[in-house]
């Protein structure tokens, strides 16, 4: 295990204070600039909304591109399976190929929801958007199911059906200690990044709501999501501490 670099407490407090002051100053400047240029900012916001609306069904393109990539990795990995089962050197490569396929397919899922939300903004594209959405869902579900099925050939001990709502739980339970450690590290990274993103977005929304560019409900939505994340993390930690005490 790597040893953490020792920092003096004074340096930590000074760095913290400087960061808070800088963030406050930036927030203040941006807030004043937004209020004094209210019309321009509103105009910019409206232009941005118009641009999003004009995209219409084209919003689906990034998701489909990711699905093409996921499918390509899937077929590449599938070709490696027979040899990977015999060859210890090839095995990690085959696994990595399926991980890449799943990475792209998971990103495509989020992009699909984004496209679903934005795709209907343009009235001319509603019918086409429906068609693209259904196509995207079918392709996404099929490729994810195929990747999981192929991964199970490499890891016969793995459990879980992707169409089962208990899939995450079943899959996690069939993981060994090293895999669970990896999941914990990935979750920590995601938590750490979101811990920076949530306050940042909240600050931006606060500034924009000052000039009525965004409704307070947006702040409520982001704050609600942040609250859920914090609650789940801290509650789970508390429950684990309870068991250990």
């Amino acid at each position: 295990m790597r040893e953490a670099k020792k920092k003096s407490p004074a340096r930590i407090y000074v760095t913290f204070a400087i960061v808070i002051i800088i963030c406050g100053l930036i927030g203040g400047i941006v807030g004043v600039a937004a209020v004094s240029n209210e019309f321009s900012v509103r105009n910019l916001g409206e232009q941005f909304n118009l641009m999003l609306a004009s995209l219409g069904p084209w919003c689906y393109v990034p998701g489909f591109l990711l699905l093409v990539g996921a499918t390509w990795y899937y077929f590449r990995g599938k070709r490696m399976i027979p040899q990977a089962l015999e060859d210890d050197e090839l095995f990690p490569q085959a696994n990595l190929t399926f991980c890449r396929a799943m990475f792209l397919a998971n990103l495509a899922t989020v992009l699909m929801f984004l496209a679903m939300a934005l795709g209907y903004a343009a009235s001319w594209g509603v019918n086409l958007s429906w068609f693209l959405l259904i196509g995207h869902i079918i392709w996404m579900a099929a490729i994810q199911a195929r990747i999981i099925s192929a991964t199970k050939k490499l890891f016969p001990e793995k459990r879980g059906d992707i169409f089962d709502f208990k899939f995450q739980k079943d899959w996690y339970e069939s993981c060994d200690e090293a895999e669970r450690q990896q999941i914990a590290q990935c979750s920590y990274q995601a938590f750490k990044v979101m811990g920076l993103i949530f306050p940042g977005i909240m600050a931006i929304l606060s500034i924009l709501s000052v000039i009525d560019l965004v409704a307070p409900s947006y702040s409520l939505l982001v704050g609600g999501l942040w609250l859920v994340q914090q609650f789940v993390y801290n509650y789970t930690s508390l429950q684990m501490d309870k068991k250990r005490s």
Partner: peptide, 18 residues
């Protein structure tokens, strides 16, 4: 092989490889 050892000790082949 790695898979058989993994099955015997309750770990995945990947973990044995690691």
């Amino acid at each position: 092989n790695q898979q058989e050892l993994g099955t015997l000790v309750g770990a995945s082949r990947q973990t044995i490889s690691l």
